[in-house]
Amino acid sequence: MNSELSSSPKPIPYGRQNITEDDVAAVVDTLQSDFLTQGPKVAAFERAFADYVGADFAVAVSNGTAALHLCAMALGVNEESRVITTPITFVASANCVRYCGGTVEFADIDPATALLDVEKVRQLIESKPKGYYSGIIPVDFAGNPVNLEEFRKLADAHGLWIIEDACHAPGGYFFDSNGEQQHCGNGKYADLAIFSFHPVKHIATGEGGMITTNDEKLYKELLKLRTHGITRDPELMEENHGGWYMEMQELGYNYRIPDMLCALGISQLQRADAGLARRKGIAKVYDEAFADVPGITTLQTTAAAFGEASATGHAYHLYVIQVQDRKGLYDFLREHNIFAQVHYIPAHTMPYYRSLGYQKGDFPAAEQYYAGCLSLPMYPTLTQEEQQYVIEKVKAFVGR
């Protein structure tokens, strides 16, 4: 191994964007065009992304949280709504319900995958009268796709909608009961799906998000809500005074995304498959390195958890290990310029959600997972030497 790398590498973060000369050229070209916002690059990015995930429609917005908020609004979440989600997620997955005045109810995770446990959700739903709950927000945590077919069956039995939080999983997929490949965000089982283009995600635009759906009515509602609740479509107006006329028909938001960010997104999308392949390669190296190391546990893929063969559509936004002394390993890695991260602090333990009645101990599997989880560096430009250095240091700490 390179001795210089082993002793003093450059900082290795848990995630990192990759901006190429083609990306820069795409942004500059748009900056020099006639449109900086509400121009043709927005629609072009939406079409390209919808094609990528296999959905009929896509709506580009300012960030993933805005995407979640608009989904909740479009589905009619209000003060009477009760929505189920996972505690192991970024808090935006739950906050979008609170933005609309609804009640968030958490259900515990499957400890093998850290995904929302469909059986726990079933128990929660069946413990209440029919119609008590409005919807479910499963999360494709770390890039591991939720088996949405199972959630769809449950949702249909109780009249619930589904928002798939696929921020970690563009390009991810699972196999349904017919053996068909179902891509995250394709709209087959979820009413709406959302994605994020934060710099550490697969597709980086700085900030940005996308909503995908196969429901044309929801699609048109999202377009309106994204722009202040305003429509310029003459067929939807109550009046029409002329070419300048527009109508604000409901209270929406300014959740638009600029054209230059969409230009960057289009450019990034062109190498999304290559980036995903590299992530899977990195994961395979980690898998092999930690397979027989006492004291290190890795999360199962959806395929493995369902007893399937090794085929998996895991998108590997994160590579998570679990260890007994997580704080010790976290500090040790930082001392060696490896900036691992923790994903996530259980949402129900946050002071805000505790103020709503939740408390530590409510979801034991989520809390046990959190006690030992650590996300190791995972991004396409991570070099083989850097990854081997990470593995070397993790093993050195765990083995001592």
Rank of each mutant, 00 (worst) to 15 (best):
L192V: 09
D176H: 02
Y173I: 10
D110P: 00
Y133L: 00
I137M: 04
G102H: 07
E180W: 03
P138D: 05
G187V: 13
G159R: 09
N178A: 14
I125K: 13
V146T: 14
P129G: 14
F141C: 14
V104T: 11
K153G: 06
I163R: 10
V146G: 04
G102A: 10
V146S: 14
V139W: 03
L160Y: 01
G185Q: 06
I136A: 01
C167M: 12
P170W: 06
G143V: 15
T103Y: 01
A193P: 04
Y132C: 08
D108R: 14
P170I: 04
A155V: 03
G187P: 03
K130H: 02
V104A: 02
L192E: 01
G171C: 01
A155L: 08
C167L: 08
Q123S: 15
Y173E: 03
I125F: 10
N147Y: 12
Y132G: 06
K120Q: 14
R122P: 01
A142W: 04
D140Q: 05
K128P: 01
P145D: 02
I162N: 02
D117A: 14
L116D: 01
I125W: 09
L148A: 06
K153I: 02
T113V: 11
A193M: 11
Y133N: 00
P145I: 07
R152E: 01
T103D: 06
G171D: 01
R122F: 05
R152A: 10
D156V: 03
F151N: 01
I109F: 04
D156F: 01
N144L: 14
D140Y: 02
V118L: 06
W161P: 00
E149N: 02
V118R: 13
D176R: 11
I125Q: 09
G179V: 10
Q182C: 14
S177W: 07
L115S: 09
F141A: 15
T113E: 04
G185W: 08
E105T: 13
P170C: 07
F174W: 13
D110Y: 04
Q123H: 13
F175V: 08
R152C: 06
E105A: 11
R152V: 05
N144C: 15
Q123N: 12
L148G: 07
H168P: 00
E164M: 11
A142V: 15
G172C: 13
I194Y: 00
E150H: 12
I162T: 05
V118W: 05
R152H: 05
Q123L: 15
A190S: 15
Y132T: 09
T103H: 10
E149G: 04
Q181R: 15
I162P: 00
P129I: 15
G179M: 06
V121K: 10
E164W: 00
S177R: 14
Y132V: 06
N144P: 03
L115M: 13
V104L: 07
A155I: 04
G135W: 02
A169R: 07
Q182W: 00
R152F: 00
D176L: 07
V146D: 00
S134N: 10
E150A: 15
A107P: 00
E119D: 11
P111Y: 12
A142S: 15
V118Y: 06
P170A: 12
L154Q: 02
N147Q: 09
F151E: 00
H183C: 11
K120D: 06
F141G: 08
Y189R: 10
V121N: 02
Y132I: 05
F141L: 15
V104E: 02
P170K: 10
N186P: 06
L192S: 03
W161M: 00
L148D: 03
